[in-house]
Structure formats: C-alpha cells, structure tokens
Write a protein that binds this DNA or RNA. Sequence first.
DNA 1: CGGGATCCACAGAGATACTG
DNA 2: CAGTATCTCTGTGGATCCCG
Lengths: 109, 109
Amino acid sequence: MKDKKVYKSSLDHCPLTFALKIIGGKWRLPIIWALSKSETMRYNELKRNIDGITNMMLTQTLKDLEANNIIKRQQYMEVPPRVEYALTENGENLIPALKQLANWGKRIK
Amino acid sequence: MKDKKVYKSSLDHCPLTFALKIIGGKWRLPIIWALSKSETMRYNELKRNIDGITNMMLTQTLKDLEANNIIKRQQYMEVPPRVEYALTENGENLIPALKQLANWGKRIK
DNA sequence: CGGGATCCACAGAGATACTG
DNA sequence: CAGTATCTCTGTGGATCCCG
C-alpha cells in the first residue's frame, strides 16, 4: 500500500519561518495592528475596525493568535456578553520587529 | 483570450502587508536566506542549497524576487551558460529586519 | 453580543516532461 | 546549465446561514 506522503513538519528549525507562520495569514496582521493601537478591543470593535473581515475569519484568526500566545481573550459573564481581546507580552514584543519591516517596506515602495 | 483577473488592491497602502507579500511565499525566505550568506550564487547552487525545491518553483520565485527588486540576475553569455543571482541593496536592507523577526521567533518558541 | 458549521471557489504549490 | 509548459491537487479564505 501506498504511504501517505509525510510533509516536513511545518514549524521546522528556522525561527524566521516560525515567525512568518504566525503573522502570515491574511487577517493576522490587521488584527495585531489594530490591537497594538488600543489596549483592549471587543469583538465587534475589531470587526468594525478591520475592513472586510467576516465573523468566521475574525473568530478563526483570533483563535489562531490566541493559540500562539500573541493575544489573550478575556470573557466577562454579563448580559449582554462582553469579550475583550488584547496583545500578550509576546504580542507586544512583536511590534518593534514589525515596525522595522514596515519601514523597509516604506523605503522600497 | 482570457481576462487576467484584477484583484482589489486594498492592501497596497500598508507597507507591512506589502513587505509580507514579498517575503511571504513558501520559497522566498529560503532563497533570500541562502543569498544573504553568499555574495552570489548560481542557479544550480541555489537548487542544491534549498532542500526540496523544484526547478519550477525556483525559477518562479527567482523571477518574483527579481521583479520586486530584492535580487538581481546576471547572465553570462558563455558555453555552458552561467547565471548568477545576488541580493540587491533592497534585499540587503531587508536582512536586519528579518533578523529581528527571527530573534522574536527564537524567544517565544 | 459573540460566536460556530457547512460548503465552495480559487490561487499557490507541485509532478512531470520538454528545450535553447 | 538554466530554465519552460501543462496539468493536477490542496489549503486557505470566504459566503451564508445558524446558535447560546
């Protein structure tokens, strides 16, 4: 029988590739960027701020980022429900690196 | 003939997104990284250095990077053919930003 | 208000074979 | 040596509707 092809584990030894995996999705940066400009944001606040994102993509991306410890989720048991998102320390630490990349982008554009 | 689909350029204004577009592909970073460690490299040298890349992906990615002025191509009209690739100044300038990102990746990994 | 589930389109990645 | 030309496949993103 045929072996299922085993793909090299995606998060290989290179920290750069690892970093890019985290910020690489279509909506990851917009969310990180939005959160970097504001201590905390609620779900619908994010949605309003990020043009064109759907509920599904927002939810999914938030989960990914949370799983990677870039953002944290704080849920308040109230009526109506309130959920706030904010950058973790890892997330904050990412910002300077992103700024440098952005500067590069600005220069060569 | 077929229409080329024109994609909405909603991302153009952000230099960060722009930068990520450039380094975002699967093989872009490996190529940039390889070239950053060596002044110039020939086609087959690159291919040997980048594990698993096919001719097609190498050629295509090299073209993309050249179109974005990250690398430059120098062809010598000899027999056998010789083509050398190297980072442009833009490409060199990108390296520090990548290093910072890599450092971040190393810390949180 | 803050999500989740299902289904589907499409661009990017790849295999394979051929060429100046 | 340094590429091209097709075709196929798969993963990511997205539209739409539903739920506590």
